[in-house]
Design a protein around this nucleic acid. Structure first.
Lengths: 336, 336
DNA sequence: CGTTGTCAAGACAACGTTGTCAAGTGCGTA
DNA sequence: TACGCACTTGACAACGTTGTCTTGACAACG
């Protein structure tokens, strides 16, 4: 900046004014400064600028995802990026792989770099450590899952409602024995989906059979194996509800391997790409990761703009998409 | 930091020493300072720190992708993140949607924030504007596509070889009329894949028929329509090579709609999830986005560590995965 | 006992920028 | 002519931190 000032023959402050398009610079000098900037290929140092500037906005936010390469996460990421871009804000993204330790590390790194706010898909079960953080002024929005032990904004899918709807759908198609495959119960969404499953069964007067419920499944293989085992039961399920996209994929694999994809029903939570091209096409309860991301970013920016209302808890609706696999009726179902 | 110093009853500089674990602080004071840091929930401002520090490394890199939510991009992103994390470096990611303007904007924003280096999947056709940039010391690595008019490091897939291999594979299965569906030819990878297609045909003594080549296709619908049109030709192709994952998806749709997925062969460039579950399962030439990202990040950090060798041009191999759709033989093929 | 060396600790400037305020210029008006 | 006013321009401190240098204490040595 000093070089630019020297080349244009003006004071530092004048260059600063031109760079920030502040008023009160004569057109003549403005031209001279701009020419010098171009000539020297100068770019203001945003870090130094925010150092002195009041309010100290870095025009930067942090985003903690489960895994940037997971389709759900990455669509959410894109929605956040788009919202941020409208405001000239850049996004730091990081994956924490369900590791609370990593979540803390990431948030720590974000804080060191003085991000204006953080959007987080939490892995941790205790967010009290963020209490001080928030008091220090960093805006914080939870997305996909609620915060635990901390009263913070959250935007989540209707996990309970969606699961209830999916299982009710299977019940309506005559199923009475429905298997449930779920993720770690430490993840609140997984717990909610299991709750929805139980609720729907309860509404139909069916007791939850522990043999038909498998949780803590983390990948397609684990899900496939769980299905193999359930199909080998004396009274096997006639339908499955898979509570997460990877588990759905594992489920499809298992049913195909057993050659029973046309007789055992399947509904998954969360849409998977190409689900419509399989035969049977896979019915799912689709979440809207873009809506989640957009709503989270909007709320974050609302906070950054000074909104101090009490914590917002927004629920984004989900949609049951009937494509075929969820509409298979049980073979031996007694006619109504 | 002043508050911490006051609370611990020491000078600013002593706190600085403790924070950076510099030697020469008595154990007693160190404990006192650490306690004060904890008590005040203090975190050093990384921006201010790098301002004064020699070398001025921000421990931050920028990543320009086509679209963070595209599976290819996001897997690449994850590999870069992992490499960065090993070094305590944070990643700014941005999508440019094939818009050169947006590419420049993003790189400009990165530069303002003084990132140590930039990894870019280029959209632009002219990177001379980055010349000054590089001279200013920002490390720059191109990935997936080469830089144009700029001698910079690049890590790319073997687009030409992969396309040649795919088309040769179709030829070996008896096809003589093979349709090509490609993306914008302004994208160098698309051009390379078309070149590979022509090369393979040429090797078999077949002239490229312009009716069977469609480019500038950007989404599944466009690809599906192109296939519809080619299938309606008097002498329709018996096989297709789709030069990009979205186009492959469109191709599958079109063939299914026409009910000809079991008689017309299809090979796609770039793997798609669930390709193995379709029937027929989709044969592809798979890229390795993780290897691309890892190699790009490694090269970037090598540059940041002071490597000044001349530009590296690394080619990552691709793999033909035969799953079924690419092994369909033409109906009316004359027996050998 | 005086000199030297070692080490802990602090004072101060500097990084690149912006906020504040003062100085200078030219114009309109009493 | 003198005054006030609006406007342009610049000098200087400040942001939160680290590099450099100085100070002071204390031990070892001749």
């Amino acid at each position: 900046m000093a070089d630019v000032a020297a080349l244009a023959g003006v004071a530092l402050k004048t260059v600063s004014r031109v760079v920030n398009s502040e008023p009160g610079v004569s057109p003549e000098l403005e031209v001279r400064v701009k020419r010098a900037i171009e000539q020297l290929n100068y770019r203001r140092d945003a870090n130094a600028a925010t150092l002195r500037r009041l309010g100290r906005k870095t025009q930067t936010i942090g985003l903690v995802l489960e895994d940037v390469s997971n389709p759900f996460s990455s669509e959410l990421h894109r929605a956040v990026e788009d919202a941020a871009r409208e405001r000239g804000v850049l996004v730091f993204a990081g994956s924490c792989d369900e590791d609370p330790e990593r979540e803390r590390e990431l948030i720590g790194s974000f804080r060191e770099r003085r991000v204006d706010g953080i959007i987080v898909v939490p892995a941790s079960n205790d967010h009290t450590y963020l209490y001080e953080e928030r008091r220090a002024g960093t805006a914080l929005v939870f997305v996909d899952r609620r915060a635990s032990h901390l009263d913070a904004d959250s935007i989540v899918s209707d996990n309970f409602g969606g699961a209830t709807q999916a299982v009710s759908h299977l019940l309506e198609h005559g199923h009475r024995r429905i298997g449930f495959l779920g993720d770690l119960l430490s993840i609140s969404t997984a717990k909610e989906r299991l709750r929805g499953y139980a609720h729907a069964l309860d509404g139909a007067g069916i007791r939850v059979d522990d043999d038909l419920v498998r949780t803590e499944l983390r990948d397609p293989d684990a899900a496939a194996q769980a299905i193999d085992e359930m199909l080998a039961l004396p009274e096997p399920p006639t339908a499955f509800f898979t509570g997460q996209n990877l588990l759905t994929i594992g489920g499809v694999h298992a049913l195909r391997r057993a050659g029973r994809q046309r007789e055992v029903a399947l509904i998954g939570f969360d849409d998977i790409s190409l689900a419509d091209l399989l035969s049977p096409a896979i019915s799912v309860v689709a979440q809207d990761p873009q809506a989640l991301g957009r709503a989270a970013a909007d709320q974050l920016f609302r906070r950054l703009d000074g909104d101090t209302a009490s914590a917002l808890h927004q629920v984004i609706p989900v949609t049951l998409i009937a494509r075929g696999s969820g509409e298979i009726r049980p073979r031996s179902s007694t006619p109504s």
